[in-house]
């Protein structure tokens, strides 16, 4: 590869959007070409400077309050008018409604996995909305891990991935699928990642599986007798990176 070919793809490389085959070739060129290597460093420093929290404008409380107030008044108005419509149409609509309800109930019953996914997404969303994201606020794995002692009947593996740009923020106790679980919270830039961990009797490891629900990505896997579920609004690729960095892989 020469500079002419390298130039247009240096940015895609910095953005993690270059396909694997090209990465090797480009890296070989960067190794030999100080000018292109410098161009890459410039893009990387620029990216870093732009990604600082200082440049992110959080929504003012006032805006949040106004939006919520408007939503409430809108949905109340609608509820009232739809109640009226319902009453007038009730007699003719009743039979259809019952039939529809039956269909919904029998078709709409979610599988155990769907229910768990739902619970995990809800828990993730709650953690974003409320102030109780964290029970223990610490970026130190050696503080977070012992904190779970006596609160859980297992000891979750706690890793800090700050070096991989997924800093640990803290942990909390959560309740999923009828049991207490450990929730660890990580960040990538503005994105929160919740990692839920609980023990399983299954001895075999299961590879990471990616799903999505309500706009969140979820990846779950199991190893060393534990089940792991990571959930975030981060894009799939970066969440996968997180999972790969987190995996313990004892072999």
């Amino acid at each position: 590869m020469n500079c002419q070919q390298a130039k247009p793809i240096v940015e895609a490389y910095a953005d993690g959007a270059l396909e694997a085959a090209m990465i090797m070739e480009l890296e070989r060129h960067l190794h030999d070409c100080p000018a292109c290597a410098q161009a890459l460093r410039n893009v990387q420093s620029l990216k870093k400077a732009l990604q600082q929290d200082a440049h992110y404008f959080a929504a003012p409380t006032e805006l949040r309050r106004r939006v919520k107030a408007e939503l409430n008044s809108k949905s109340e108005l609608k509820s009232r008018s739809s109640m009226w419509n319902w009453l007038t149409a009730a007699t003719t609509g009743m039979a259809t409604a019952c039939l529809a309800l039956l269909l919904v109930v029998s078709l709409g019953r979610p599988s155990a996995e769907q229910r768990l996914t739902q619970e995990i997404v809800s828990s993730h969303v709650r953690s974003l909305m409320a102030d109780h994201v964290l029970d223990v606020v610490s970026t130190d794995q050696h503080t977070v891990k012992p904190w779970f002692n006596g609160k859980l009947d297992f000891s979750p593996p706690v890793k800090d991935l700050a070096a991989k740009e997924f800093p640990l923020i803290g942990g909390r106790l959560d309740y999923l699928g009828g049991r207490n679980v450990a929730a660890l919270i990580f960040r990538r830039q503005k994105h929160v990642i919740n990692l839920f961990i609980w023990p399983t009797k299954e001895k075999n490891s299961e590879p990471a599986l990616i799903t999505s629900s309500q706009g969140y990505h979820l990846i779950h896997w199991s190893e060393v007798g534990m089940v792991f579920w990571a959930v975030s609004d981060l894009n799939e690729k970066e969440l996968m990176e997180f999972v790969q960095d987190y995996e313990i892989r004892p072999d």
Binding site: K68, S75, S79, V125, G215
Partner: peptide
């Protein structure tokens, strides 16, 4: 119903109000 819809909206969309404001602000 309208109330459930509003609740679901609050859970799925409103957590992104920061992102909405940040983009609008820039």
């Amino acid at each position: 119903d309208e109330r459930e819809r509003s609740k679901l909206f609050e859970q799925t969309v409103l957590p992104h109000l920061d992102a909405a404001y940040n983009l609008a602000r820039w």
